[in-house]
Design a protein around this nucleic acid. Structure first.
Lengths: 191, 191
DNA sequence: CAACGATACGGAGACAGTCTCCGTTTTGTC
DNA sequence: GACAAAACGGAGACTGTCTCCGTATCGTTG
């Protein structure tokens, strides 16, 4: 073909970009303050746009959540890079799981949304978790090879375990220390 | 005083009793089929009563859930009786925790509702869990005394752990075997 | 058994949230 | 500056929650 390739993503129009940014900014704040179940119309309103505009940019709540999670995800990614180079696979996995659990607590009710997203094939929120599950898989494999954890636990089980601990600690309003404790308790069994 | 005691709970009027029963019956079926988040107006409709009637009998969704849980709770209570008499505290606790986890999976989304109920002092749903947490405390104490589990874990932590496993296994659509596996994995740490 | 007060019913409708449709406005290009 | 494409925004359809109050039913009493 003549054109370079499939999606030539022509840049957003300036007003569109501006609105996109404003919505994202307001949404992040709202999610942080009231959890991911906040009214979307309300977010649109606070961002000074109509509901239609919000839904055009982010067709579903999950899209918006996924976008708002970008920053936290970036931090996780940086950590992942460091941990992949670690020479203590057991400790690396521990640190990673704690970081993932904390990520899941970024917003109230986030664990529920993510768990739900995992039930539908093409959820944007699930897609945003991709690097997260992949890193988990890698670190689990390394830990197994190093004999730091049992050979018969699957990465997905571990992810589920961490999610559920994040869920519980959020429901209980636990502190960071509380999360750490629960996570340690729940993950003892993988060793 | 002359009267027997405080609340002389005069019996329901016959039509009220009939409606109460019908609502409960329909609600149980609806919860079992579609989870505890089903539309209450819809339940009222199917029970052949107006929304007002439903809300008079069960002022909140939690009230209705608590009432619908009665049967499962009865079964748990019977099991509790047996386990309290067991001479193997470790095994008794294991069996109990599995039963509790299964109870929490009675309806879809029940773990969320219960976790939420635990955040408000006078929730009817929380009240309905009372015998459940008490039995857990007792069995945990016995298991500690027998040296079957660590002395530094609290009953509430264990309850939270079981809840979160029930939550996760429900979100994943796990089978009974799956639940059993996850529960074993998550509770290894208490030993 | 009639009549009356207490009890309970039920549905209209207020309210909140989601999401869409389409007439209008803004943008960027020629 | 004019035109087409892109984007806006808000009215409103729809769903679910929950209440209020005029009406119906029940059970008791004379």
């Amino acid at each position: 073909m003549g054109t370079v390739n499939a999606a030539a993503p022509r840049p957003m129009r300036s007003d569109a970009q501006r609105n996109y940014d404003r919505i994202l900014e307001v949404a992040s704040a709202a999610f942080a303050e009231k959890g991911v179940l906040t009214s979307l119309d309300d977010i649109a309103c606070r961002a000074g746009v109509g509901p239609g505009t919000l839904y055009r940019h982010f067709p579903s709540r999950d899209c918006l959540i996924a976008a708002a999670l970008g920053e936290s995800l970036g931090r996780l990614d940086a950590l992942a890079g460091r941990l992949k180079a670690s020479d203590d696979p057991g400790a690396a996995l521990d640190e990673w799981l704690l970081a993932v659990a904390n990520h899941l607590r970024t917003y109230d009710n986030l664990p529920e949304s993510i768990a739900e997203a995992f039930r539908t094939e093409d959820s944007p929120l699930r897609a945003s978790c991709r690097p997260l599950t992949e890193t988990t898989s890698l670190l689990v494999r390394r830990a197994k090879e190093a004999g730091a954890i049992r050979a018969d636990v699957e990465p997905l089980d571990i992810f589920a375990l961490v999610s559920s601990v994040a869920w519980a600690s959020q429901r209980r309003g636990d502190s960071d220390a509380g999360l750490r404790r629960m996570l340690a308790l729940a993950t003892t069994g993988i060793r």
